[in-house]
Amino acid sequence: MTGAVDQFVSDHAVLRFLERIYGVDVEAVRDQIRASTARGVEAGVILDDGTFSVVVAHVRFIVRDGRIVSAKPRGWRFRPKAKSR
């Protein structure tokens, strides 16, 4: 758009828009992700891998310090950062 001001739209605003306008039950989605990744996340925490991924169906969930922080297509390659000495 010519003359339009660049506007930043936060993830929070997008999430609330989906929730309030389209009726997406965000907590139900969160619960579904939590339930479907529980065993993989638990195993990763036990192994103390820090950052790792859990694949469920066609999604690769990225886990950092026991928290699911992202979701990528299954074919996406996970490359952990090299550990500093």
Rank of each mutant, 00 (worst) to 15 (best):
M1I: 05
M1Y: 09
M1Q: 04
M1T: 01
M1N: 07
T2V: 14
T2N: 14
T2S: 15
T2W: 07
G3E: 06
G3A: 10
A4N: 09
V5S: 15
Q7G: 12
F8E: 11
F8Y: 12
V9F: 07
V9Q: 08
V9K: 11
S10F: 13
S10G: 03
S10K: 06
D11G: 01
D11I: 01
D11L: 04
D11N: 03
A13F: 06
A13P: 07
L15I: 03
L15R: 02
R16Y: 11
F17Y: 03
L18G: 02
R20P: 10
R20Q: 15
I21T: 15
I21V: 15
I21M: 15
Y22M: 05
G23S: 10
G23T: 12
G23L: 03
V24A: 04
V24C: 00
D25L: 05
V26A: 10
E27I: 10
A28I: 07
A28V: 07
V29E: 09
V29N: 12
R30W: 06
R30N: 13
D31G: 00
Q32H: 00
Q32A: 07
R34N: 10
A35C: 02
A35D: 12
A35Y: 03
S36A: 05
S36G: 01
S36L: 09
T37G: 08
T37R: 00
T37H: 08
A38C: 10
A38Y: 04
R39T: 07
R39C: 13
R39L: 06
R39Y: 09
G40D: 05
G40I: 00
V41E: 05
V41A: 06
E42G: 14
G44D: 01
I46E: 04
L47P: 06
L47T: 04
L47H: 01
D48K: 13
D48Q: 05
T51I: 13
T51Y: 08
T51Q: 15
F52V: 05
S53C: 14
S53N: 15
V54G: 01
V54S: 01
V55K: 11
V55M: 06
V56F: 05
A57S: 10
A57N: 14
H58P: 06
H58V: 10
H58G: 13
H58Y: 13
V59L: 09
V59M: 02
V59T: 10
V59P: 00
R60N: 10
R60Q: 00
R60W: 02
F61N: 06
F61R: 00
F61V: 11
I62H: 10
I62F: 10
I62K: 14
I62M: 14
V63N: 00
V63A: 02
R64P: 02
R64Q: 14
R64S: 13
G66I: 03
R67W: 09
R67V: 10
S70A: 15
A71E: 11
A71T: 11
A71Q: 09
K72V: 08
K72M: 11
P73G: 07
R74Y: 09
R74T: 04
G75P: 09
G75V: 11
G75R: 15
G75S: 05
W76Q: 03
W76S: 03
R77S: 03
R77Q: 04
R77M: 02
F78C: 12
R79W: 01
R79A: 08
R79S: 00
P80E: 09
K81T: 12
K81G: 15
K81Q: 15
A82G: 05
A82T: 06
K83R: 14
K83F: 08
S84R: 12
S84N: 11
R85I: 06
R85Q: 06
R85P: 01
R85G: 13
